[in-house]
Structure formats: C-alpha cells, structure tokens
C-alpha cells in the first residue's frame, strides 16, 4: 500500500506541476502597474500565490529578455530599485493566458459535474 507520506509527496508534486505557469500570468497582470522584485513578491503572496523569491527574481529577468516586461532603475529614493513594467506584448500574452485559464476552469468544472450534461450533448 502507498503510505500517506508518499501520497503527500505525490500531491505536492502534482500541485507544483499545476501551479507552474500561474506565476507568469499573475506577474504580467500585476506589473501593468510598475513594481520591483520584493513588492511583487509581497503582492503575489498576499493574493494567495505560493511563489518563492528564488523562482520569481530569475523569472522576471527571463520575461524581460522575452520582451514581455521592460525595466528601469528608479534612483529617486534612498534605495535604488529596478522597476519592471508589463509591455504591450506582455499584456496581450497575459490576456491570452487568462482566457485559457478561464476556459480550463470551465472545462474542469464541466467534467466534474454529473453525467446529465454528457447525455444532453448527444442531441
């Protein structure tokens, strides 16, 4: 029999698999208002996204190199910070990703609801 501990590990690896990619949508959506690394981290965890700093910081640079974010150094304050902002392309991609998310959510819900919808769809 599979032990509870193995099941926990299995669950957490599947959860991780499912969550991968959501950070991208969330970041591109949040950064329509310019923000820096730590502020984004705070916003995301407050919003309920389980994201770690060591994934988020490299991700921001990758999105920037893909042209989905732009960045500029803000030196007005005592601590200079690198502000990221979603580009037009980034915004378009985020919109497409959000649509996909909605579609998947609906599809999963449909699958989960009892069989009547399936027999009804025969007509």
């Amino acid at each position: 029999m599979v032990s509870d501990m193995t099941m926990d590990a299995t669950l957490s690896s599947h959860l991780q698999e499912l969550r991968r990619g959501t950070v991208v949508v969330a970041s591109l959506t949040v950064l329509r208002t310019p923000g820096y690394g730590y502020s984004l981290l705070e916003t995301l965890s407050a919003a309920g996204f389980e994201v770690e700093a060591n994934t988020l910081y490299p991700l921001l640079r990758r999105l920037e190199s893909q042209g989905l974010l732009t960045s500029s150094w803000n030196t007005d304050e005592a601590r200079p910070r690198k502000f990221y902002r979603t580009t037009e392309q980034g915004d378009a991609i985020a919109a497409a990703l959000r649509d996909e998310w909605t579609r998947l959510d609906r599809a999963v819900t449909d699958l989960d609801t009892p069989a009547e919808t399936v027999s009804g769809s025969d007509k």
Binding site: Y36, G37, Y38, L41, A53, Y57, R61, K82
Partner: peptide, 17 residues
Amino acid sequence: ADIDRELRTSIEDAVEA
C-alpha cells in the same frame, strides 16, 4: 553588475520588512 544591484536591493527590502 545588474544582478548584483538588484539582488542586494531585494535582500535589503526583505530584511527591512
């Protein structure tokens, strides 16, 4: 150079919080 600056700021931000 860029990562150096950015990472330090991020660490300082977290420490400050």
